[in-house]
Design a binder for these strands. Structure first.
Lengths: 235, 235
DNA sequence: AAAATAAAAATGGCATGCAATTTGATTGTC
DNA sequence: GACAATCAAATTGCATGCCATTTTTATTTT
């Protein structure tokens, strides 16, 4: 490791490193987050400071900062003197996560109905229609992309920044499920129907119904993810 | 302030400092949090690193860590190269905060109705009855104490740790309103009635109604806090 | 007085080193 | 072989020091 440290002093123009484009801490954070979310780092895996420091060629300071933020996000677990490990993602946690998301997004939908601007609603509808196309063609990736965008759009349409940020934080954790969720056709249709129902409620300005439908949608999604996780888990 | 620094070198046995009972960062965090929540540090006030470092006799490292955590909590604002300032607490923010809390606690109430254990429910009722006594006697402090306990108890009865921690984080911010909220008698009665209504819904195992009542209660509380803030603000 | 400029003070973002604590592995003992 | 004692590796929580930026503040200059 001393080699690594030496290798950046001797060079005439030390322009390399990680490049100072972005703070090292942020780069580490994003790198680790992505690897965790994508399942690249297995749940329960230890994250040894020295190792990562050496790999990324940074000191402990930014790494530890990143780890603490990830711990707050619920992606890693830091236990005293045992270091950081990748937080396991269990079916139970998925259910809990989506349960909270249902409360948040259900509220968002309810509020959005009366607060959304016409132009934004039109935009939302456009997204939905485009998503329908992908649904019809069975294009999962494109569908998911728009699906996420729609969920976020509804939350933002509620016009409550605190709601939006709280939602964002939880969604980050929930994304861990996405990469495993190979949707079963029947559930896919059901999910899409729920999206249609919400769009319908928006069109009719039926706030209460929008909220109810959306809450249900989120709960169902949670159950689906939990099922997938259960199926994917050996024990 | 240099006096403070000097005063710890000369002594023979430097046993003081902050005492190493708890991590310095945590002590600073709690100290700052309390002072902000209680309004001891005025909204918008700058928090100068060096000054606080000198006062608390710690280095910048733990202080900056504490500030970052407070920023995540939404109690301080950190702008590039301008440092940390105490986040203002506006009527708008209060409304937003309680709006989100209504989503969270409303969900909690709904879930709790079916998940709460009998013993816990009995405990909850006991708390409520005791609170009624304080209400009748007009004992604000004791009332508020139990009021908080009841809200938290309902959230915990939902049996969802993620919901509980999300709620906890937001409640921390909302507490800033508590210390200014000199309740108007009419609103106080209304609030208490809402508590009664929830207890009633719990008794009848009417989840939906519990959720509705509780959501309304939180929204009303938000409006009350916002009113107080508006009244308390000169501009 | 307004504007331009220079000097000082803060902040951001690290790297490095250290003492205290804890965990784990190694070794020695009964 | 179970159990205790020991020792090395890790981790935590800081302190300290750098250095580049960016305000802020003071000082000059129009």
């Amino acid at each position: 490791m001393t080699d690594i440290l030496q290798s950046r002093a001797p060079p005439p123009q030390p322009k390399n490193r990680l490049s100072r484009r972005e703070p090292a801490a942020k780069q580490i954070l994003e790198m680790l987050r992505e690897r965790i979310v994508k399942g690249d780092l297995a749940p329960g895996a230890r994250i040894v400071e020295r190792t990562v420091c050496a790999e990324m060629n940074v000191s402990r300071t930014p790494l530890r900062e990143a780890l603490k933020l990830l711990a707050i996000d619920g992606l890693v677990q830091i236990s005293q003197h045992k270091g950081a490990t990748v937080m396991p993602f269990t079916p139970e946690e998925a259910l809990q996560l989506f349960e909270v998301l249902s409360g948040l997004e259900g509220l968002a939908a309810e509020l959005a109905v009366s607060r959304i601007a016409n132009a934004t609603l039109a935009d939302l509808r456009a997204k939905h229609d485009q998503m329908r196309t992908h649904f019809d063609r069975g294009e999962k990736d494109a569908y998911f992309e728009l699906n996420s965008a729609i969920h976020t759009a509804i939350v933002e349409a509620a016009g409550n920044p605190i709601l939006a940020s709280t939602h964002h934080a939880l969604l980050l954790r929930a994304k861990r499920g996405r990469y495993m969720a190979i949707v079963d056709p029947h559930r896919w249709r059901e999910a899409f129907d729920e999206h249609e129902a919400v769009m319908d409620a928006f069109a009719k300005k039926d706030a209460k119904r929008a909220g109810e439908v959306w809450r249900t949608h989120l709960i169902h999604t949670g159950e689906t993810v939990a099922d997938v996780l259960r199926a994917a888990m050996p024990d």
